[in-house]
Write a protein that binds this DNA or RNA. Structure first.
Length: 281
DNA sequence: AATTATGTTGCGGT
DNA sequence: AACCGCAACATAAT
């Protein structure tokens, strides 16, 4: 589910509700989903929430952190008295029935507040880490697409070194982080570049356009609160809105907004890829 | 009813 | 080193 915009949406809301809360206790319902010593997390106060790549970092008062990766189907859902009592939403009854059968870990934050980590497919995780471990994890990822250090020169030089399809290259977190399958497809359409073009075949100008398009679709995704295709939810349980304005993802057979041709779906490197054979060259 | 699909990433092998 | 395929897992759709 989550790509950079979805994770950023989650982080921005968590920043509003978590700082100052103390973790009274945590319950691990699926061992695989939590890594660390549960005892070391208890009684710690949350000081801050931040994001890097698709990782969510919950900073604790002793300078350790909880790092969360949602992978394909993870959710972080927060509830407190306002959610459970008058602030509830009629279509979000499920929020009040947490923990659910997909809840893997949950945190009791006191005063009837709680944070639930739900994850249907159990690929995601919550790890308790010290600063050094966090930096080691961060080091696995190249800078974020929307980070200023990812310049056209940087991007072009990375592309020159690979013959893989450009679609695969922009999904490679060793090149840059943040794009996933939805936004990668949309960015290529916006830049009018065919997903199978070898990375090294892009001119500097094309690379520059594609990087700009990538930043644009991610920013739009953030502005719309992410894309809810299936599992992604805001921290409060609401859906995002980007799926209503996707350029190509999931629109097989429908007209390209740029040129009107019917969009096609093709499997590239094992991933469903949507594009327009009319204008993406 | 078996196969295929799903928003991520890491591993093992060529 | 680059690159490919598959694996982790649950569930819904064909």
């Amino acid at each position: 589910m989550p790509e950079l915009p979805e994770v950023e949406t989650v982080v921005r809301r968590l920043q509003q509700v978590l700082p100052g809360k103390t973790i009274n206790s945590l319950t691990v319902l699926k061992e695989k989903s939590f890594v660390g010593d549960q005892f070391l997390v208890m009684e710690k106060t949350i000081t801050e929430v931040s994001r890097r790549a698709k990782l969510i970092r919950i900073h604790l008062s002793d300078s350790t952190s909880l790092l969360v990766h949602l992978k394909m189907t993870g959710q972080l859902i927060y509830v407190d008295d306002q959610e459970r009592l008058g602030g509830g939403h009629p279509t979000l009854d499920w929020v009040q029935e947490l923990p659910s059968n997909h809840t893997r870990v949950w945190f009791d934050l006191g005063s009837h507040a709680a944070l639930y980590f739900n994850d249907q497919r159990i690929f995601g995780w919550v790890k308790h880490m010290d600063e050094e471990a966090v930096q080691r994890e961060y080091a696995k990822y190249a800078p974020d697409v929307i980070d200023d250090v990812v310049t056209p020169d940087y991007f072009f030089s990375k592309l020159q070194r690979t013959a893989r399809p450009i679609k695969v290259a922009i999904l490679d977190s060793k090149i840059m982080s943040g794009l996933g399958n939805i936004y990668a497809c949309d960015a290529l359409n916006l830049a009018s570049i065919h997903p199978l073009r070898p990375g090294k075949s892009l001119s500097f100008e094309e690379a520059e356009n594609l990087l700009d398009a990538s930043k644009q679709v991610l920013e739009k995704g953030i502005a719309l609160g992410g894309a809810t295709i299936e599992h992604f939810r805001h921290v409060d349980g609401f859906s995002g809105d980007y799926q209503k304005e996707v350029l190509v993802y999931g629109r097989e057979g429908e007209p390209c907004f740029n040129c009107g041709s019917a969009l096609v779906k093709e499997k590239i490197a094992g991933r469903g890829t949507y594009y327009c054979s009319g204008c993406q060259k």
